[in-house]
Design a protein around this nucleic acid. Structure first.
Lengths: 358, 358
DNA sequence: ATTAGCACTCGAAGCTTTCGAGTGCTAAAA
DNA sequence: TTTTAGCACTCGAAAGCTTCGAGTGCTAAT
């Protein structure tokens, strides 16, 4: 009953790859003649035509209209991406340059995501999306309470991973800074290294001001856990607009709306990349049937970070007709780069730049 | 020698206003007939025609081509905006709703800018740009040092205004958390309420670890002062793409590039709004001769904040043909809203929500 | 199985025509 | 002197037409 697995011949695979490759470069439908001419394949255009016809029947290619060349379908693109092996790596010299830039900023965690977004947008010639590193299960590292005015205090939580959370709160009594500091000290001692659940359990061990503050900590930790990732840094939006498929303002708008609609992006992140291992690069072509808004776009995504410490997301959004090889390389590299930064920022005690030891 | 001041007659002013108004709505050139028909002005089309011709000579209107209606020049728009008196205010009910949303988030300073951007984009149907409140001359409120791993510490500065700055640093010795905390305590006592200059002066009063840390504080304060404003929150970019003047992908791209180019925006902010009083709304039409990149766009800008505490910027970017009345109202409202939030966040000791007193 | 050859298709690009909104001018009316 | 009716004129937008050629599918020969 099962039909013989619809398998492509080697020749068909080659032709499909060539057509896809050519279309990605030219942005126009690819005809049989062009395939024969550009790549000195030992076949006539007629033969190629037949194969292309077969590929069309199999759903890998399609014709925009009768008398035009072929362009890959989403299925065709997926095949192409599947066969893609290491291509278009960023040259080593550029890698070193980028690496250097990051090390320049190793003290400014907040800036990493922005820098990464900027570089990635440039490397991929598309829009980049990056989330700053964020703990899966936040662990408290330090807590501090600062009196601002009257009843009002500022609570600063430092989470493992260097993430900072702040909150302004009014208490029902006025406390001195000394009192607040000692409470912060005590609570830090008790809660250090603990996750949300353990902290909320222990809240009741305290009384007075400490009780109130402990409760606040618990609340804020819960929020930290609930936040998928604080902020999505975008860059290179205009790169996407330059692509010929978005000359129509309507299409362009639909594509960019995706980038503005945070909920969609979060959904995307959680449904695709968050279950994966860090370092794996995932390619989502044309919304993959799930996301209608992304019909015209492809997304290359990867998760970065260090298990148990913090994770973030690196991604690129571009037209379906995207330079997958280059983009995948760029995303993979950036993912690695950021993972390294996160890792070094928390484990490596030995990176003391000479000029800081004065 | 001085020519009689080129003054518009009252009738010309009316016609110019009507033409501008109509063009803003229709997005097409406006003919004499339309003016007569739509607004029951007691004149014939021929008379209007003559006046429009005069307005064209005076540089307030122009014709895209010979046999077309008129559209306002930048000069015409400026006149229009100048005469605009309170129009298209946000309805009170909506104002209250928005106000409520902000008070819901009064504890999450970081979120204000994002919320404001989102609301403003929606209200103005254009792109909104907002910077978070930022001190002009940062005053230190509190400093804390947290040991992370080995030589590495995390410094957290709390500035007057609630702004947080963090920095990771390696010291050349390992210090206990106790030692770091006491140093933080001491330095907070000495530096509290001081501005950058005073702090850097006093650095040399310390020795040992304290000297090193004081130096770090000074450095970071300098950075805080140098930062014009941390982050520009954008929203509603796609609104701009929907405007007919940006159907051409090239134009759209040029306009959006402006939004991506932070340096340009900072330049804009510092050159226009930063010298103004808070609350004043400024309108920049077609780049006003200074910014070529903005030829196609207008920007409505305002500064918000509390003198001596912190300032930020509220703005809207749209096509030159923009609903100025509505936009100006929206920007003014949002500016006031944010000023209020900043103010309350720092002075008002009496806003204790009942459910927080438990 | 491959290929040369050929009739056929159909969109893109260029050209022409039509249509009408809007103008400027002139001469009459107010 | 100001306003208005009237009219010839202009010129872009839209619609229709033609041309061009890339690319196809099919068939018959290799």
């Amino acid at each position: 009953m099962v039909k013989i697995m619809e398998e492509l011949t080697e020749r068909q695979k080659i032709i499909l790859t060539l057509v896809t490759h050519e279309h990605i470069n030219s942005a126009t439908p690819v005809g049989s003649k062009i395939v024969v001419e550009k790549f000195n394949i030992g076949l006539s255009s007629a033969t190629v035509r037949n194969e292309m016809s077969a590929l069309t029947d199999l759903g890998y290619l399609r014709q925009p209209h009768t008398s035009a060349g072929r362009i890959p379908t989403d299925k065709g693109y997926r095949f192409f991406v599947g066969r893609l092996v290491r291509e278009g790596e960023i040259p080593l010299s550029a890698q070193r340059k980028i690496s250097h830039q990051f090390y320049q900023m190793r003290n400014e965690v907040e800036q990493w995501a922005r820098l990464a977004a900027s570089i990635l947008a440039q490397q991929s010639n598309a829009a980049s999306l990056i989330t700053a590193p964020h703990s899966e299960h936040a662990k408290l590292q330090h807590v501090e309470f600062i009196s601002t005015y009257g009843h009002q205090i500022l609570m600063v939580l430092v989470l493992a991973g260097g993430e900072l959370r702040q909150r302004i709160q009014n208490l029902n009594e006025i406390y001195s800074q000394e009192r607040l500091s000692s409470a912060g000290h005590l609570l830090t001692q008790h809660f250090k290294g603990l996750e949300t659940a353990r902290i909320t359990q222990k809240v009741s061990e305290f009384s007075d001001l400490e009780l109130e503050l402990a409760f606040l900590i618990g609340e804020e930790m819960e929020r930290a856990d609930a936040t998928l990732s604080g902020e999505i840094y975008l860059d290179g939006i205009t790169n996407v607009l330059a692509e010929p498929e978005f000359t129509d303002a309507g299409d362009a708008r639909r594509a960019l709306r995706v980038l503005e609609e945070r909920t969609l992006l979060y959904d995307l992140f959680s449904k695709t990349i968050m279950n994966n291992e860090e370092g794996t690069v995932q390619v989502l072509i044309g919304g993959e049937g799930t996301w209608d808004e992304l019909k015209q776009c492809s997304i290359v995504l990867s998760k970065y970070g260090v298990p148990g410490i913090a994770f973030g997301t690196v991604g690129v959004l571009g037209p379906v007709r995207m330079a997958y090889g280059k983009t995948i390389s760029a995303v993979r590299f950036m993912s690695g780069m950021l993972s390294e930064m996160v890792s070094q920022s928390h484990f490596d005690e030995n990176i003391i730049a000479p000029n800081e030891v004065e």
